[in-house]
């Protein structure tokens, strides 16, 4: 059947054949089977659990398989404040997750440190690991987290490529965003 805008060499294909780009097909598979890594360190973790439980049912969006091994995950949800003793652990878990992977920073604490402007609390995990989605709130309601996952799915569908080219441009953005204005004092604490 002739469809407007269809390239000429697709003429004559049977009706049950769908034509797409490989990147788009890959992104479509990826976005609908996100396996979250629950990095829940504080009160936001309770809302994260509620999101996965029956009332809000994250399974409707293909993201219900919470895995406690980073090797099996591709979406890290950081829910709660991260202290300086925990950050090397978080980074190590992030590194252990196979590509492609994404990160949601859930709640005021994970995104900015929240009210905990003290010596031990990291003021936003995006200073040290890449973050794709920020969820505001203290704590965010499960609907907000679901919205973040839907938005992330849209982002994956829109920008995703099979060989991960989008991550390279994200790396440039990250360089811009991260430690430009932050002092880095001394050495140490970086190795878990």
């Amino acid at each position: 059947m002739a469809v407007a805008g269809m390239p000429e060499h697709f003429e004559g294909l049977p009706e049950n054949v769908v034509v797409s780009r490989l990147d788009e097909l890959g992104s479509w598979c990826r976005k609908n089977s996100l396996w979250p890594m629950p990095f829940a360190t504080a009160c936001c973790g309770i809302e994260l659990m509620a999101t996965g439980a029956s009332r809000h049912d994250l399974a409707r969006f293909g993201a219900e398989v919470f895995r406690f091994s980073p090797r099996q995950c591709d979406l890290m949800i950081v829910a709660g404040r991260v202290v300086m003793k925990m950050l090397p652990v978080l980074q190590r878990i992030w590194q252990q997750m196979p590509e492609p992977k994404w990160c949601i920073s859930m709640g005021a604490c994970a995104s900015t440190g929240g009210v905990f402007d003290t010596y031990s609390v990291v003021q936003g995990i995006d200073r040290f690991v890449p973050v794709d989605m920020y969820v505001p709130g203290c704590p965010p309601r499960p609907e907000q987290l679901i919205q973040a996952i839907i938005d992330l799915q849209d982002k994956i569908q829109a920008e995703g490529t099979l060989n991960g080219r989008e991550f390279l441009s994200a790396q440039q953005q990250m360089t811009k965003r991260a430690l430009v204005e932050l002092p880095i004092l001394g050495q140490g604490f970086s190795q878990p």
Binding site: M84, Q91, W94, L185, Q187
Partner: peptide, 13 residues
């Protein structure tokens, strides 16, 4: 005294 900023930065890729 800056201890909370004292980590290596992980980037994409």
């Amino acid at each position: 005294r800056g201890e909370r900023h004292n980590f290596e930065v992980l980037r994409r890729g």
